[in-house]
Nucleic acid binder design. Sequence first.
DNA 1: TGTAATTTTGCAACCGGTTGCAAAATGAGT
DNA 2: ACTCATTTTGCAACCGGTTGCAAAATTACA
Lengths: 332, 332
Amino acid sequence: MAVTLKEVAERAGVSRSAVSRTFTDGASVSDKMRRKVEKAAKELGYSPNALASSLTTGRTKLIGLVSNNFHNPIFLEVFDLFTRGLQDRGLRPLLVNLTDETDPENSVRMLRQYSVDGVVVASSTLPPGFAKAFRDAGVPVVHSFGRASSAPQVHVVGIDNVECGRMAARELIRRGYTHVGFMGGPEGATSTQDRYTGFMSEMSANPDIKVSYSFADAYSFDAGRREMLRLLKNGPSQAYFCGDDVLSIGALSAIDDSGLSCPDDVGLIGLNDMEMSRWENIDLTTIHQPIRQIVTSSIELMAAMLDDPERYPETRIFPCSIVERGTLKAEV
Amino acid sequence: MAVTLKEVAERAGVSRSAVSRTFTDGASVSDKMRRKVEKAAKELGYSPNALASSLTTGRTKLIGLVSNNFHNPIFLEVFDLFTRGLQDRGLRPLLVNLTDETDPENSVRMLRQYSVDGVVVASSTLPPGFAKAFRDAGVPVVHSFGRASSAPQVHVVGIDNVECGRMAARELIRRGYTHVGFMGGPEGATSTQDRYTGFMSEMSANPDIKVSYSFADAYSFDAGRREMLRLLKNGPSQAYFCGDDVLSIGALSAIDDSGLSCPDDVGLIGLNDMEMSRWENIDLTTIHQPIRQIVTSSIELMAAMLDDPERYPETRIFPCSIVERGTLKAEV
DNA sequence: TGTAATTTTGCAACCGGTTGCAAAATGAGT
DNA sequence: ACTCATTTTGCAACCGGTTGCAAAATTACA
């Protein structure tokens, strides 16, 4: 079906190597030769087989893009940014949906079978060990949105979730709330754990503030809504730090639905600043996570690793900032 | 770095063919041989190189997943379903983000270079010719969410957008609205055009109803919001059929923001029934598009084409139905 | 136990490219 | 016109697998 190198070579009356060389840049070909080959190639509609060449060059330009967050709208933005960024560098994303899998073994095996040049793990819930498994298998890996570490075993790009927890706590304190809650995502998620740690550590310095906590069972609207309905029934706190915008929006819906008002009855602060949080009918006060920079930086790091696989693992943490909108009361 | 067939063969003291055969099912290998090879393979941590084998078998199990809808949250659901469905069949999605490209040439070339076994075009905006380009290049293709046709040139799976337009029109009429509008997505999108056609055809049978129309410049929240703000300034209709839920939600935000109420001042009916439309703080009346079935069916069709590439192109259309929620007035 | 039918195995060529090396062609310099 | 240095080209081996074919091994049957 497809036209091969050999056919082009025959048509142009030259050797196969000559054809190969005109299609690999940096190779030595005379102008005359190049023209002859390009003519024949065009006539036959030839384009080189990337996979065949990968056999000898050892590079496929395939990048595994592994994620398990297909229910959080922010990940549509993330996928958009990743696919574009990778494409711009001539890399091709091979998308892997982990669903509920947390064992890296299958993904590692599969992605090695496809000889991916590298892997981006885009997940705020998977433990560091997940990405580590790729490194152990000799595959360059970047963990985006992963847990920050001062001694990372793989490249990590993301935010300081502990600090975000503290920020949220400080913000609630600053606004004069005296009875607050932490409503996290799934308890096993590293991001939830870290945000919890930060939030609680800051609160423990303020013993006069009453603090409660609980966890939704997923980073999703429904989970946030369910959890908030439960909280409302048991007598809610004055304000909550929700571990993610999509949880906040679920919580918001529960509050509205119970005939209560946000921020008058219950205040909310989220984390992510996803597009939807800006929507005027949501207008969520939240902590901005710079996903654009995180993605760009992850791709940069990946590209750097492709050049130097031995590169020393590094952690890149981007600062977050509070975006004041309408779901917390003005300072009292 | 990676362990090869040859090394396993040497370790097991057998021929390379023997190793190859133990890893391809249906091949003739004795039990004794299989055990010997598997032992050696396990010891060395061997797993076959899928791309190398694709050279001779002619199958990569790679499927190009091409889309340009990275700003419509419903596509996160679509990607989730596609990636899972493909993975379940041992197929691997190679994701292509078209951004604003509408010329198939680049994608066709790139996906052929990677020898994909097939391509799924997941887009409600691209014209039939886009998918056709893959077929012309000899690549099996399914156009999901594409324009229905009675004489399709490629497999198309989706809904009857013209009929959806009619449904929306009938619903607005049934509810007694006498002054209605069509607020479409981008004018060039096939889905917009078809929904417009259906809507108008039904309306033309009801000359006493006043009808207007306009188009947002993207299928996105912001575009819907902008367009509705413009409409509100110029004196809006009583109710609108928005060409997509995400547009409706943008419109909703514009309405709320202008101090008006939906459905009391302006009614809305959307199309898609995405997860978010169910959220209680949105509660959008809409036309349900059965995306789960569309995706499942697309994958089925793709799998069938892999077995029989000459398969005659077919159109699979799934029925839609109205989901009554809170953004249209009860019948008057 | 001998022979024929059947299964298992290895050889070698092939898939579609790349690349080191040496031979051929070109260009520079006198 | 004749060296010598430099560039361009083709040969052949290789990347990591698969597969048709014939030889070797096993099994069936008399």
